Simulated assay, not measured.
Amino acid sequence: MTNPDDLLPEGLEDRLPTEARAVSRAMRQILDVMDAHGYDRVSPPLVEFEKSLAGRMVGGNDGTTARRMFRFVDPVSLRMLAVRSDMTPQIGRIAATGLAAAARPLRLCYGGEVALVRADQLDPARQRLQLGAELIGSDTVAAAAEMIALAIEALEGAGAKGISVDFTLPDLVDILAKKALPLAPERIAQVRRELDTKDAGGLALVPGGAAYMPLLYATGPFDEAIARLFEIDAGGALASRIAGLKQIAERVAERARLTLDPTERHGFEYQSWFGFTIYADGVRGAVGRGGTYAIGGTDEPATGFSLYIDAMIGALKASPAADILFLPLGHDRDVAARLRAIGWRTREALSGNDDAEALGCTHRLDGREPTAL
């Protein structure tokens, strides 16, 4: 019978051996890919002063993001601390302080746990493993193309299959509203909202909103959607962005399915001209999101992405477990060490009653060689 005191809070769960092994392996493979491309890993603390952490986060100035973080008083400094809910702002702080004098563009990667006070309806988890990479000092087309290619390769290295990438243009309405499709400043947020919900009727009711109706249909497979977006581009206001999207797509077109939803803003509230969401076969919801943005506090341009591989656990743990070698009493320890060095996992008998199969072993060490059970 389960002790009520042993129950975990809503949105938190243990990772048992199979899941923990799959996640650890995927994390290691993803970070290895980033390292191979010259991204240096940094490891910020789990807890920081709330003011510093929230000040570099989206909504930090109005308290929106701060309310998503677990907060408590530091008994040493008597200042408010917070548990990070996103590692990206911490990377920005590191770039602006300890690595302020480092050459740009600066390539950094990271991996660690984050926690949320409340999760969203689509993902009830309140503790997540976040991995990512940031290219700081550049938000160019070349930087965006490098980020997407890196994210795809990292996920492939972790075992993801059938990767697809959905592009968006977070500042699309702002750009068009200036001249091409004029909107009163107070109407911009309304048009964004109706485009977010794909509500043609609501969009038509907003003064000036009807002109944005064609954007609702510039979605779908990339080649078709970008052609429709080009037709909408009155006066060439989006010419540079369309050219940039085509250049980015060209780099990764053979490695992933590409789609375009130029008005999608969920999860892209602070990105500038470009954003993307990554999906994989067999995984519910997005496995990653990224784009171009300005670092809070310094406004230094950057391009990056975050991967949340918890959603991939179901697919990852389906991979076969590694063989385990049972080491009986009195075995040759030098032989066991040699076998571990070439990749064997071992479990050593502590008594004559230990049963190799009951302990999950697949092989037994007989003399100097493993024998299948």
Rank of each mutant, 00 (worst) to 15 (best):
P182S: 06
I94W: 12
F276Q: 06
L108M: 06
D354I: 08
L46K: 11
L260M: 05
D334A: 15
I30S: 04
G282W: 14
A151P: 06
L172P: 03
G208F: 08
F274T: 07
V335F: 12
G208L: 05
R338P: 02
L365S: 07
V73E: 11
S138H: 04
L258F: 03
G288H: 09
A151T: 01
R265D: 05
A294L: 15
G290V: 01
L155G: 08
E194S: 12
G282V: 03
V206I: 15
E348R: 12
M27T: 15
M147K: 07
D334Y: 13
A119Q: 02
F326R: 02
R15Y: 15
F326M: 03
G159A: 04
G59Q: 02
K51F: 00
G202Y: 04
A177S: 13
A237N: 00
G59D: 03
A142R: 11
A22R: 04
S351G: 12
A286H: 13
N3I: 01
R340W: 00
T88H: 03
N353Q: 15
K179M: 02
L316E: 08
L12M: 11
E357H: 03
K161W: 09
D40K: 14
P9A: 10
G297R: 09
S138M: 09
D171C: 11
G92E: 05
I175N: 04
G159Y: 01
A210M: 12
S272Q: 11
M87V: 14
Y217M: 11
G111A: 14
